[in-house]
């Protein structure tokens, strides 16, 4: 770092002076520059030694490993494969799911109920006094499935009477709710409600939800008297 000897090939001093004048250097800074430059070594260059052959062998082995590892852990390049042990399943060998069976409806309905309904109606199905009516042993839940379906599809506002108590709440419409993307999701949650906490009523199926949805079309929420005129308690 402390070279002070003259570098070969440096231009004659008068040349340098002319060029540095161009760079607007004064005499003092000219000396500074000289002192600096004389200590510097050549700008770096590169030698041309060949790559050691053993390195190339190592890199080939690495590349080979990379190919094998990539293929073995790629989840067959499916976008929906999230784990290395993912296997593609032949669709023809799968048993189709029966969406009308209680085995499908109940667990699905329980999950949807706990995620979307239990905030108001409670996981016990008991609701809260004055606002959210209970679903346990209730004639609103029992009987004609269309009443329950109609309430879930379009919502219900205003005062109603359940099991002798007054409730004044606001049941939102779930007919276009993002958590219930298909009618079988609505069917599942209603079937769960009709069979949980000691309730034991007929399941509600997807086809029933779909046909009532078509029949009712677009409409606002029900109020407490209107719903009972159309679907009286039995």
């Amino acid at each position: 770092m402390s070279t002070t000897e003259e570098r070969p090939g440096a231009p004659a001093p008068e040349d340098q002076h002319m060029i540095l004048e161009h760079a607007k250097l004064g005499d003092d800074s000219l000396q500074d520059v000289h002192a600096q430059l004389m200590r510097e070594k050549e700008e770096p260059t590169e030698g041309f030694s060949p790559i050691p052959i053993y390195l190339l062998f190592v890199f080939c082995a690495l590349t080979f490993w990379a190919g094998i590892y990539f293929e073995a852990n790629s989840g067959h390049f499916k976008w929906y494969a999230y784990s290395t042990d993912f296997e593609v399943v032949d669709p023809s060998s799968q048993v189709p799911i029966d969406y009308d069976s209680l085995d499908w409806l109940i667990p699905r309905g329980e999950r949807l109920y706990n995620a979307n309904c239990a905030t108001c109606h409670q996981t016990s199905g008991m609701g809260s006094p004055g606002v959210y009516p209970p679903l346990v042993d209730s004639r609103w839940v029992d009987g004609d499935p269309d009443r329950l379906i109609a309430i879930l599809l379009h919502g219900l506002v205003g005062p109603i009477e359940v099991k002798g108590n007054q409730y004044n709440g606001n049941m939102p419409a779930f007919g276009a709710h993002p958590a219930f993307r298909r009618d079988r999701d609505l069917a599942a949650v209603m079937t769960y409600v009709r069979n949980a906490w000691g309730n034991a009523y007929e399941p509600i199926l997807e086809s029933q939800v779909t046909s009532l949805r078509e029949e009712l079309g677009n409409r606002g929420p029900w109020d407490g008297t209107e719903i009972l005129q159309v679907y009286p308690l039995n």
């Binding site: 770092m1 510097e40 770096p44 590169e46 030698g47 790559i51």
Partner: peptide, 20 residues
């Protein structure tokens, strides 16, 4: 890559290694 050969005053060992 600049400072090591510059301060030592010797070329970088191999252009081929650099490029790889």
């Amino acid at each position: 890559y600049y400072l090591i050969p510059k301060v030592l005053g010797k070329p970088i060992h191999s252009y081929y290694l650099s490029i790889l």
